[in-house]
């Protein structure tokens, strides 16, 4: 601990000695971290919106006309027993007709002698079961149940939404990975330059009996300080941007966490960058 506090003081005084160039480095790293944080917040927000939208999504199971009340009750219970099903609501043919009349207008359906609509069950699925493959699988299983005439669901829309969310996540991940690699590269090169700039000092430390880790640790500390300082800047900027994106309302913690985590992430990249820089240099 004693030694570490000495190394931290050494690293800080080294950083302040070249404050101009170091601030420039911190700023350029913070731009990368800002983009990572804001992309993650955006992807989180989109995924959350898609998930909320699809929560109310469901299937409609049309029932055979021959089913009596008892059979319908039994079939409803059977459908509700399916693990992916959140709930099943019985819609009588009369309710279905009155709904249709509301949509199309009373006059349009006046000419009908009898109600052609079947009884049905409206089914909501549990969250996490609205991927196209899963919905298709559940629909096929329900269709096989006795007394079921047919199953209808918005397969196309499910696919489009899930695909959009997947693409956003993929794009965000690719951007995040590229920026992370870039930041590590900047950090590693900065530390390497500092290392060579202090080669005379390092030579003296070695002659005084310093071990290679005694020489390396201040550079590792500097890497962490660079990363964390840049993370702090990026955190403030991305939180502000997220607030602005939320039209002046603070986003919920489950969406906005990357704006705080970016401080730790910056520190971690600092360690990786400086380890890559000083770990490979022979002392």
């Amino acid at each position: 601990m004693r030694i570490l506090s000495f190394h931290i003081r050494t690293a800080l005084s080294n950083m302040f000695r070249n404050i101009g160039i170091n601030l420039l480095t911190i700023f350029s790293i913070s731009v990368g971290l800002f983009l990572i944080a804001i992309t993650t917040v955006t992807v989180n927000t989109l995924n959350s919106a898609v998930s909320e939208w699809t929560e109310g999504f469901g299937l409609v199971v049309y029932l055979m006309d021959s089913l009596d009340d008892e059979s319908i009750k039994a079939l409803k219970a059977e459908v509700e027993n399916e693990p992916e099903v959140k709930d099943a609501r019985f819609i009588s043919r009369e309710t279905a007709m009155s709904r249709l009349k509301k949509v199309l207008g009373e006059a349009t359906l006046d000419g009908l002698d009898e109600n052609p609509l079947p009884n049905s069950l409206e089914i909501s699925l549990r969250q996490g079961n609205v991927q196209p493959e899963k919905v298709r699988e559940v629909a096929a299983r329900l269709k096989r149940l006795e007394g079921v005439e047919g199953v209808q669901f918005g397969e196309k829309w499910v696919g489009v939404l899930a695909n959009a969310a997947r693409r956003f996540t993929l794009f965000g991940s690719a951007l995040g990975i590229s920026l992370t690699v870039g930041i590590i590269f900047i950090l590693s090169n900065t530390i390497k330059v500092l290392f060579y700039r202090r080669s005379n000092e390092i030579k003296i430390l070695k002659l005084l009996g310093a071990t290679s880790w005694f020489i390396r640790i201040p550079f590792l500390v500097e890497g962490v300080l660079f990363g964390s300082a840049a993370g702090l800047l990026a955190s403030g900027a991305s939180y502000g941007a997220a607030y602005w994106l939320g039209s002046g309302h603070a986003l919920p913690p489950n969406l906005v966490w990357p704006t705080h985590a970016v401080i730790l992430f910056g520190g971690a990249l600092g360690i990786i960058g400086s380890l890559l820089a000083v770990g490979r240099i022979r002392l």
């Binding site: 004693r2 430390l205 005694f214």
Partner: peptide, 10 residues
């Protein structure tokens, strides 16, 4: 510096 390298307390 000599003492720091040897781990002598501050």
């Amino acid at each position: 510096l000599t003492l720091r390298i040897q781990g002598v307390p501050s």
